[in-house]
Computed example of a mutant assay.
Amino acid sequence: MSAELTFQIIDTHAGGDVSRIVVGGIAKLPGATVRQQMEYLRDHADGLRTVLLEEPYGIPEMSVDLIVPPANPEAMAGYIIMEVMGYPIYSGSNTICTATALLENNMIPKREGQQQFVLESPAGRVAIDARVENGVVEAITCEGLPSYIDTHRATIHVPLIGDVTYSIAYSGGFYALVHAAELGFSLTRDEESRLAHCAQAIVEAILTERGFSHYELGDVGPLPFLHFMGDVEQIAGGHYRSRSATYVHPGVICRSTTGTGTSARMALMHHEGRMQPGDTLETVSLRGSSFLGTFTRVAQAGGYDVVENTITGKAYVIARSQIVVNPADELVDSSQLRGILTCIQPAD
């Protein structure tokens, strides 16, 4: 008889993107910082990510966030982000979901009104501002990573598509930014499959031609994201709205517009002189959900204008459950799970 492997999760979603928050059953990982714990998980125990994002437990469009001890003494919790493309060091939607899950599960005491606290992501310290009304978390505002434009309006030839004009932003990962209308898209839900195929072709063409390096972090991996940009509507002085869609390589169109996608878009609008500190940008997804980006200030770093920003959104808890993994299940590779799970129970 084989033993069952078990751990506890809280399923959440922000803007339609499901984040599975792992809150129990995982042993303490090696590493003094959240970044080091992430690197251990990535290099030695990737089974947690693959089990939860692959059949029969999940789908690639989901994300996973593992709660871990923080290194920063200010932080109330640490979290490691896992997606189909691997281990991004930051994500706005995952941060919103993680903060909500911690509050709604009483892992961080919830207080009525505005509440501030600090989390630690693999990118470092993240300030959180939560709005609680009648005991419910109604909104989370989190810091976006400082964002900048690496490349502005370059052109690349993409097989079966033609010449494509794109910009490159860094906002927690490198993003290719393209205008949807130039590629024949209106950014409606029925275009989702075609958007994914188009984005995959563009990203693969860029990957074949070049790589990118962060001015401080250096090589942060191959280009993982593409953001389709709709037309910008000015809804009031300094307040803008745009339909958007974010692609994660390989093959995933996000349900939400994503926090890092919104940050990348603000960096481009500032670079083009269309957005200033104090302005806001609401990005609207194919499903009509939205995130609100606020451009807080400009800094100089590495020879770039760096846009500091926050992202606001709402997450919902949709399930609390225990995952049971049977090592005898031929559809599941649990070989990298045993070393990090604390809950191993005899099978009936």
Rank of each mutant, 00 (worst) to 15 (best):
E233Y: 11
D163S: 13
A127W: 00
I235T: 12
L177T: 04
D65Y: 01
I156T: 13
V203N: 09
A77D: 03
V22S: 01
G293I: 06
G302D: 09
D150Y: 12
T260C: 13
S93I: 15
L5Y: 15
L187F: 05
T262Q: 00
T188V: 15
G135A: 08
L5I: 15
L268H: 07
T294V: 13
E209C: 13
E191P: 05
E54P: 06
G339Q: 09
A267F: 01
I26C: 06
T262F: 04
L268A: 09
E216P: 00
P327S: 05
L217N: 04
F174N: 06
G113Q: 04
L29D: 11
L29S: 06
K110D: 03
G162A: 06
E272Y: 09
Q37G: 04
I323S: 07
P250Y: 08
M266S: 08
P224L: 09
L103F: 02
R297V: 02
G302Y: 11
A315F: 00
P346K: 14
R20W: 08
L119F: 03
R241K: 15
P277A: 07
I128N: 01
M229I: 14
E39H: 11
S256I: 11
F7T: 08
L160T: 14
A180K: 01
A301D: 14
L66F: 02
A77V: 00
V126D: 03
E143F: 02
A245K: 00
I140G: 05
G237C: 07
L160D: 13
A3E: 13
S335E: 03
E216I: 15
I10T: 15
V284T: 06
L103E: 00
F291R: 00
V178G: 01
N309Q: 04
P346R: 11
Y87S: 10
Y40W: 12
N106E: 14
V164H: 04
Y87H: 06
V178I: 11
M269Q: 10
G144F: 03
M275A: 10
L5Q: 04
H249G: 07
G218F: 08
A267Y: 01
E83W: 00
L331W: 10
Q115T: 00
S335T: 14
A176N: 09
F117E: 00
L207E: 13
T258M: 05
S263A: 15
